[in-house]
Simulated scan of single mutants.
Amino acid sequence: MLFQRPDDDTLYDALIARDAGYDGFAYVCVRTTGIFCRLTCSARKPKRENVQFFDTTAECLHAGFRPCLRCRPMMGSGEAEPLVAALLEALEREPERRWLEADIVAMGLDASTVRRAFKRRFGMSFLEMARLRRLGQAAERLTSDDSVVDAQVEAGFDSGSGFRAAVTRLLGEAPAKLRGKTMLKADWIETPIGPMIAIADQHALHILEFLERKALATEVRKLQAVTGSAIAFGRAAPIDQIEAELSAYFAGTSAEFATRLAPQGTSFERQVWDGLRRIAAGVSVTYSGLAGEIGNPAAIRAVGRANGANPIAIVIPCHRVVGASGDLTGYGGGLWRKRWLLEHERRIAAGLTRLVTRE
């Protein structure tokens, strides 16, 4: 049974009481400060008329609120909760398994606690995530010419029409049309500032975005249209490589990325993205400066549009571009992330400089 969110008055009472029983079911957004928090946050409590509640951190970010630095609603620091890590590992071992709440209980876990933990971290339950993985496995079988009925049974669907509708929503194609198509893989990557989704083939990374980015769905459709490929949840070598490189990046030990990239864009956009990759970590440039660097100083607005169309966050560092006054400008992952990344890279650059000086 899916959890039904209590009404706002009940949630406000939980906020005042810092009731941990509601933690993860909803988040409070404070209009007067522009910040969103957990219901258990220790900050001073706002008035009832100044708050609104959302089910997920993604909704809070889409509404323009930024995460509280005190209660860290994005769960940005440290490793995933042990129960989350354990279930993700189990899902990796058996992505084709039809997981039920009974399976979670059999592992000695509380089903409602698991729901809250996954909702906090991913905006979806573990069972929803497992369903997506089953669909991905089924889609792979379809591209290898297995029958639709066999793939349906393998994915755990009793209804043929339900299976076809679910695959179509996920991959944008009816099951029968997937046969013979090249299959791209998509998977989650955890970072200290929120989960990202990576999409790749066996040779290169096509998309790396924060899950809250509004343009993500458009980028996925564009990728499918250009490549003629379908997308299933799973792992490809470039995803493993970029995950390892991001781990070193967030640990502050390296700002270098060697994963092969294949972003879909016009020749001008790719020229801008190449220019972005030449900006060193710890350095920021203006749009006019970037336009001059690529040899087209009059194309400031076009450079801005290309910067915003970048489908590979962090690795193609569009966050290193600022306004002419030095102010932070728009960023698809949210301005708070842009500020975080620039400060993080400043510290990386300073640490590497000290290391070279000592040597």
Rank of each mutant, 00 (worst) to 15 (best):
L171H: 08
L171A: 14
G172E: 03
G172S: 02
G172P: 02
A174N: 06
P175S: 08
P175M: 10
P175F: 12
K177R: 13
R179Q: 14
G180R: 07
G180Q: 06
K181E: 03
T182H: 15
M183I: 07
L184F: 11
L184M: 06
K185S: 13
K185Y: 09
A186Y: 01
A186T: 02
A186H: 01
A186G: 05
D187F: 12
D187A: 14
W188Y: 14
W188E: 04
I189Y: 11
I189W: 10
T191P: 09
T191S: 12
T191A: 11
T191H: 11
T191Y: 13
T191N: 09
T191I: 11
P192Q: 10
P192S: 11
P192L: 12
P192I: 11
P192A: 11
M196C: 13
M196P: 06
M196S: 08
A198Y: 00
A198D: 00
A198G: 02
A198T: 01
I199W: 12
A200H: 06
A200T: 04
D201P: 06
Q202L: 04
H203D: 15
H203G: 04
A204Q: 14
A204L: 10
A204D: 12
L205Q: 09
H206M: 07
H206A: 08
I207Q: 02
L208C: 05
F210N: 02
F210Y: 15
F210E: 08
